[in-house]
Design a protein around this nucleic acid. Structure first.
Lengths: 260, 260
DNA sequence: ACCTGAACACCGTTCAAGT
DNA sequence: ACCTGAACACCGTTCAAGT
């Protein structure tokens, strides 16, 4: 009888050989897969168990309950967020880069903003991210209280904006120009309001409905950072503060993922 | 046989005589009652029907589905939010008053922030509120785009902050100093982290955990308003802009509820 | 120790049938 | 026209029983 031929490693991209013992990591990975492909409502314990070819009751040996599972999924994706190491003269731009990276993570994972919105990221990657965020914010000269709260405010903003963007076209399975069609409808509705009673809505129907997600995001970012800088007083490190980013020539060489 | 004695009106505060026909208003009122008393998770169509002494299928003749019901509840409570008529020299303070009123509404209705967070208020009271908000913001000299987005940003902020505050002590039925106990635990945890790896978290453990909800709210409000003012340029109407409120002596006589 | 089947106590929504 | 009962297709969580 010949020796057993080993399975070539490239046959199992990362998932598992047909029968792998149930593991918390495997459960969380699979949950994220379902989330990305089908959304939060499809992510039931039963659906997840089916994907893992096991009974749904078996999951409770490894995750406690559904809410804890979502905590773990949230902490896992936090790995993808890049928080730059502070560089002099680039503070405002680096804060923006951090927020844009967080936003990219949300846009890459369906319904993740819904999971994140009412959760404090206290998993290992969340704690790591908090540390690096505080480090960046303090480099801008924010005093303690403002640095402590500023990180919260920024991440809340990014999460809420991602939530709004994803929920805007969540009615069915559409995703592309459906947002535009909704905006058109809303524009027509606002324009049709009685001018005497709603002068501002009629006048601003254009600006209200023409702001796309990217513009909203950058505008909000600008506002909050300007507010933080204003609150920082004439801080020493915030030399690049304010809403301009004149010194944005250096590449973000120091940016690294949270998880490493 | 004597004439039928009429029921004294004070016996039915506002609810209904024992048998009143099912109505959308009655359904929405009752839904809000359940929400306040028992929270969003308790607000099922079946629980609601039971409260109304009817079959749960009957509700669908008046509300479409559960999501639409929540839309209606949201629009109903928007009635309680006061948005001041602009007064010269009090812009920043009036914006704060508006946001505080919105916050009070959220704190008065359990889990309402969870309902509001992924909903655009397009009901009659929502539209009315948008109009009055835009009117106030433009009185501060914000140009069109900033006014259009500023209202969104402010209400998102207030909603997210209310959500965080309510979810902080949502584990069980506690509500009072439970938040303080959690803060203490978190403080101990942050202080126990290895200083070499987490210098900022260790150093800021105090500020991070000592910020109570009121302080967080006022801080965030300050930051966003400062950012809006900075973006407004040297606007004419924003004479009271910035983060101070020196002229806050006049009573808000012009403030009126949204719904009237 | 880990996994399973079966059960418990719920959901939202639909629809034919009643009044 | 409005309401109802019954059914459909799901949920999360627990727990005694198996291996």
């Amino acid at each position: 009888m010949p020796e057993e031929i080993p399975v070539p490693p490239w046959r199992r991209p990362k998932k598992a050989p047909p029968r792998m013992p149930l593991t918390q990591d495997r459960i969380v990975d699979t949950a994220l897969g379902i989330l990305d492909a089908e959304g939060l409502d499809a992510l039931s314990m039963r659906r997840l168990a089916q994907e893992l070819k096991t009974g749904h009751a078996s999951l409770y040996a490894h995750v406690g309950n559904r809410d804890e599972l979502l905590d773990l999924v949230f902490d896992l994706v936090l790995t993808e967020v890049e928080i730059p190491e502070p560089e002099p003269g680039r503070w405002a731009e680096q804060v923006k880069e951090m927020c844009r990276s967080l936003r990219r993570m949300f846009l890459a994972h369906r319904d993740l903003a819904r999971i994140a919105i009412d959760r404090v990221p206290l998993g290992p990657n969340g704690i790591m991210g908090m540390e690096r965020t505080l480090n960046l914010l303090r480099a801008g000269g924010l005093q303690d209280e403002l640095a402590a709260y500023g990180g919260d405010l920024l991440s809340t903003f990014v999460t809420a904006e991602a939530l709004e963007q994803s929920s805007r076209h969540s009615g069915a399975e559409q995703s592309e120009e459906q947002a535009g069609m909704f905006a058109d409808q809303l524009h027509g509705y606002l324009k049709s309001l009685p001018t005497a009673q709603f002068p501002n809505l009629v006048h601003l129907a254009g600006p209200i409905t023409s702001l796309d997600s990217d513009r909203r995001f950058e505008l909000g970012l600008e506002i909050i950072i300007a507010g933080l800088v204003a609150g920082a007083g004439a801080g020493d490190g915030a030399d690049d503060g304010g809403s301009n980013s004149a010194a944005a020539t250096v590449r973000p060489a120091g940016s690294t993922p949270v998880g490493s």
